[in-house]
Design a protein around this nucleic acid. Structure first.
Length: 461
RNA sequence: GACCCUUUCAUCUAGUGGCCAAGGAUGUUGCGUUUUCAACGCAGACACAGAGGUUCAAAUCCUCUAAGGGUCGCCA
């Protein structure tokens, strides 16, 4: 049985990189019919926030990644950790360290000066004397002194780190609360996690956690470290790069499928395939095709995917989603026609909404350049004649094709080029010279509204 | 500074010694289609970081160099 987990710390919103890690873990569990757990790493009481936890769960809901069972909170599991700390203490595998923070800092500086990798020197490892007064000790675990700590990373292959690089790290703070590297190992082992997938930035935590696994006699899971996602300049993604919060994508009008598909292809591949439905992801995902190198965030590709998924989405669903973007077509009998005319011209729901608004709302302003280009001396006359024609043939104008014919016969009767009517008409209907097909637009608007818009333009020429 | 990781078009990537004078996708350029814009279709430009090996044969294996990234907390 495969069990994976996503274990964020609740210090802020869910980051796009975190979502990718979660996605990979989720897919791997689903592909194998295993379990995907969500565990909140909130051992540092000073830093947690409940809102952050909520935000993370909200983001999971939005993208549709469901976790198995209840959410685990490490802050509710302190009793368990305490037991293991006591056990290690009594077995002599951990010890109390009375070094003060000042002493620690001094040691680090010294080591840096000597160009060494700073680490605890083990001075209380075998201490038997009387402890200094007035100091609440921390508890440190005994890491191996010589040799190598080796593990096979699921993505990078064999990793060797000298034991001398791993110091006797703290497993419990002086206030008694346990620390990250200790509780992660315990929880992953206790929860039966078989595949630990996490960011590259955790690579150096792995040997530490292996120390814990070994001290407690737990079986090791497979560790897989995902390379980071960089910004478009190739630097680490930061808040300055704009949308790093998953929920910002919702507000920006992205579809969850598009975001997941984008993230999936960022660092993972299945031959030449670019488009993956959620079901395909679940059946095709395979960690051996995760790439070792870090990748850059590419907004263009996300936009392309998003427009693809907008086109794929059934109208009824789009109508629902558009409500969040200020457009309610649910009671509009023209909704299918409107979406047909606009669906292909929005890369995001925000853009789609504004395209729709262009049609359903009378123009309040007209693009100046287009006005100049479209309006000639005889434009008013042409528009007047055309609006007359519309009014007269009202009874026969029932489909876009009817409007199309009306336009055609108007042009041939008047012996003018199509642009003479087409361009100003477009400005009249939409306020600018780009947008959906004229016949489609007029069909949606109907004769009265079309005429009204033409009259409105005439009045300001 | 020490330790670890990475390196194919601008970007995401295919590629596991001969199928590669390197394939797909995004973006970009041109053309077509269209009443405009978009969408769509077709075509073009663009890459194996560098240097040495190993081999009949290297993008693929080895060594070094360079460039990026990560980690060095009583944070996670």
């Amino acid at each position: 049985m495969i069990t994976t987990r996503f274990a964020p710390s609740p210090t802020g919103y869910l980051h796009i990189g975190g979502l990718r890690t979660a996605l990979f873990s989720w897919l791997w569990a689903r592909k194998n019919g295993g379990k995907f757990l969500l565990r909140i790493e909130d051992t540092d009481m000073a830093r947690n926030s409940e809102e952050a936890t909520k935000a993370i769960i909200e983001a999971f809901d939005w993208v549709g990644m469901e976790y198995d069972g209840e959410v685990f909170y490490q802050s509710k599991r302190f009793d368990i950790y305490k037991e293991y700390i006591d056990r290690l203490l009594s077995e002599g595998k951990a010890y109390k360290c009375y070094m003060s923070k000042e002493e620690l800092d001094a040691l680090r500086e010294e080591q840096m000066a000597r160009k060494e990798r700073p680490r605890y020197d083990g001075r209380y490892r075998d201490f038997t004397g009387t402890p200094p007064a007035g100091i609440e000790p921390v508890i440190r675990i005994k890491a191996p002194i010589g040799g190598m700590i080796t593990f096979v990373d699921g993505i990078k292959g064999e990793i060797n780190i000298a034991s001398s690089e791993v110091d006797d790290f703290i497993i419990a703070r002086s206030d008694g609360t346990p620390t990250y590297n200790f509780v992660v190992a315990i929880d992953d082992a206790l929860m039966g996690v078989t595949e630990v997938m996490r960011g590259d930035d955790h690579l150096y935590n792995t040997p530490k956690q292996i120390v814990v696994y070994n001290a407690l006699g737990f079986e090791l899971p497979r560790f897989s470290h995902l390379a980071m996602i960089n910004n478009e300049q190739g630097k680490k993604l930061s808040k300055r790069d704009g949308a790093t919060d998953v929920m910002e994508y919702k507000t920006a009008g992205f579809l969850p499928e598009a975001l997941l598909n984008f993230l999936l292809r960022l660092g993972w591949s299945h031959g030449d395939q670019e488009i993956f439905s959620i079901d395909e992801m679940k059946s095709l995902f395979e960690p051996s095709h995760i790439s070792k190198s870090s990748s850059c965030y590419d907004l263009n590709k996300l936009l392309w995917l998003n427009s693809h998924y907008i086109k794929e989405t059934p109208n009824e669903k789009l109508v629902e989603m558009l409500k969040d973007f200020g457009v309610d077509l649910s009671k509009d009998s023209r909704s299918n026609n409107i979406l047909h005319a606009t669906k292909e011209r929005g890369k995001t729901l925000v853009e789609l909404a504004s395209q729709i608004n262009l049609i359903i709302q009378q123009p309040t302003e007209y693009n100046e350049k287009d006005m100049k280009k479209a309006i000639k001396e005889d434009t008013v006359d042409i528009l007047k004649d055309f609006s007359k024609l519309l009014a007269e043939s009202r009874a026969t104008l029932l489909t876009p094709l009817d409007y199309h014919h009306a336009l055609e016969s108007f042009v041939s009767q008047k012996e003018i080029g199509f642009g003479r009517i087409g361009q100003p008409l477009r400005v009249a209907l939409l306020g600018s010279m780009s947008g959906a097909g004229l016949d489609e637009i007029m069909n949606i608007l109907g004769v009265d509204e079309s005429v009204a818009r033409i009259d409105k333009l005439i009045s300001i020429i």
